[in-house]
Amino acid sequence: MGCCALCKSEADLIDSHLIPKSAYKHLRGLPENGGGSPIRIDGGQGNASQSDLQITQYLLCRVCEDLFSKHGEKVIGRLWGTHSGFPLVNQLLACEVRGSHEGYSLHDHSVLDRKDVDGLIYFALSIFWRAHVWNWTGKTDPYKKALGSKYEQEIREFLLGLQSLGDMLLMLNVNTNAELNSFARLPQAYRKNGVTHHVFSLLGIEFSLFLGGSISPEQRSLMGQDKVLFATSDIAKTNVFNGLSQFVQTKISVKGKLKDKMPIRARGSSS
């Protein structure tokens, strides 16, 4: 028995996953290449290794676990990038381009299935919320309670169906480079040019969350009532991926057999 972090009821808690259990098989290497374990980069500990370790914790009651599964995880499980295909990028590339900038193309997502859009929003906010309330140990906490008490409560009530989205914007950048979909990045928050970025990546989709004053006037002019924007890009050619590559090469100690494979120069990066 314990207190469910979402509904706050006393109940038998489920051993919940931070990243959906179903994602891990898609993060492994191709079967014809040996099906290697996913590469895990731990910024807190400053190391990288190949590991099948799944991040779990007794966090939610059965009812709330089912909420997350029904409203978010089942939806993204139909849309993310795997070795056999990437339904979401195919759908977006068929949508009208509203504008392009520095390798990113912003798409009109009004033709996407409304249930899919709502499910992606729900899933993303559930991951940011889980990272915030997670009982991290040692130096591994990549998120550091970044939502703050106000937005943690607002998102918790949204996930419970008690209120609509508050003053926030979610941006989904969907990768067009099929070679770089088997990738996961745990939620983290960082400040750049006075703006706090909340971000995580999973199987070809980068989720970025902006809260309150961090939403720029330009972003507000582009976002609709659903408070979400969809873009596509070749992740290997973006500043985000090249920044991560530089971080791995300069800040991360590589362990085990991974030493033979890293550091890696990102495709499209300058020499």
Rank of each mutant, 00 (worst) to 15 (best):
A131T: 03
G148Q: 04
I235A: 15
L170D: 00
V195L: 12
I76Q: 07
Q163N: 13
L169H: 00
Q249H: 10
L202T: 06
G77L: 04
P217N: 07
S164F: 06
A231D: 00
S22G: 13
A23S: 08
G148F: 05
S69R: 15
E96N: 13
T232C: 06
V111Q: 12
S51N: 10
F241Y: 14
K257N: 12
F230H: 06
N33M: 11
C7K: 04
N239P: 01
F241W: 14
K227H: 11
R265T: 08
G36V: 05
G213H: 01
L211C: 10
S269C: 13
G161H: 11
S22H: 09
Q57I: 06
H198N: 14
N90R: 13
S110R: 13
E65Q: 15
G166H: 11
A266L: 07
T137I: 02
Q57P: 01
D260R: 14
L93K: 15
R40Y: 04
W134F: 13
G204V: 10
V199Q: 15
L18T: 03
E206G: 11
F68G: 13
R156W: 03
L169S: 00
Q219F: 10
H109W: 08
R185C: 15
C4F: 07
L186N: 08
S105K: 01
H83N: 05
I252W: 04
D116P: 02
D260T: 11
V228Y: 05
P87E: 04
D42C: 12
G72W: 00
G35F: 02
D260M: 07
E32D: 12
G77Y: 04
R267G: 14
S16D: 14
A184R: 14
S69E: 12
A236T: 14
G256P: 04
R62I: 09
T232V: 14
I121M: 10
K261C: 08
P142G: 08
Q91Y: 06
L162S: 11
Y190D: 08
R156N: 07
L67P: 07
G166C: 12
G148K: 04
K150I: 11
L112P: 01
L30R: 14
L92Q: 00
E96I: 04
